[in-house]
Amino acid sequence: MGIDNVRYHGWEGELRTPWVACAAIIRVAMLQVFRRKSYWVVIGLGLLNFLLFWSIIYAVTQFDIPRDDQDKLLGAFGFSSEASGGQENGYIMFMQRQSIIVMILLAFSGSLLVGADFRFNSLPFYLSRRIDRRHYIVGKLLAVGTLVSLLTTVPALLLFLEYGMFTSSLDYWRDNWQTPVAVIAYGLVMSTVLSVLLVTLSAYLQKMAPIAITWSSLFVMLSTMSGQLSRRAADRNWHLLDPWRDIRYVGKLCFYAGKRLAGEVSQGANAYYGIFANDDEFRRSLWALLILVSVCTVAIVALVRRVRAVEIVN
């Protein structure tokens, strides 16, 4: 080192609030994930699903397809051939399918994004800065949430834009203004639940294999178990054991709230605007909301305790 040439200058100025540091944490997380080629395989699957929905919407809006076939084609993906209504289930279905990709990606990236900080004792790099544990936790939650949103909410919004742009009628924009709001709300629910669960699990388990196994068990095993119990007991309330279904129920609530917000009236066969099949399903969605809030609260308490405990473990 040419010590005589060292140009070390003091820094004078105002630093920004420590909350801005959350942006740096998100940046690090994105760099880490998108640099790994193996993760691009999973992200690629998500892109394929997106392209499938994109193509279907493009085909029915741009090509001269008989009405019956159009209904069948769109119906298979949850959309309605009526551009001015009945699109909600399409977005719910798309985001639900994307969430499978998200689950796989998160199972393998939890260790990288959060577990490594605990495993390699990297936390001092963060906590010796102006940020404290609150900023660290929020930063990590936002990082995982951003990853989830990039794979679910953002492409769903793009599909909404695509549908609108390829539809000749302006009615689509006028009648569905609440849809992107509901998509964002559903995305927020998904991001929040998944990020809280993943960050907490990763903080405790740290290594990739235990995180992936536990994460998969949580979503696959509980889902299978709830299905079995539901069939054997002939009680659909057992479905509430399935976290995916709980998230989807709450997502439906978001779309339902959007419709209510738009002042639309639901009547007769179109009760709950076709989003919920019946009263039972609607009630179950409220229970699902309560369950998710409870689980997230417990997970956050556990996470805070874990981050505090770092000082003892180290």
Binding site: W11, G13, L15, R16, T17, P18, V20, A21, A23, A24, I25, R27, V28, F125, Y126, R129, R130, I131
Partner: peptide, 13 residues
């Protein structure tokens, strides 16, 4: 760079 950002510096700084 990330550590500098964690301190609260702007991108440029």
């Amino acid at each position: 760079y990330v550590m500098a950002r964690l301190c609260g510096h702007t991108r440029r700084d």
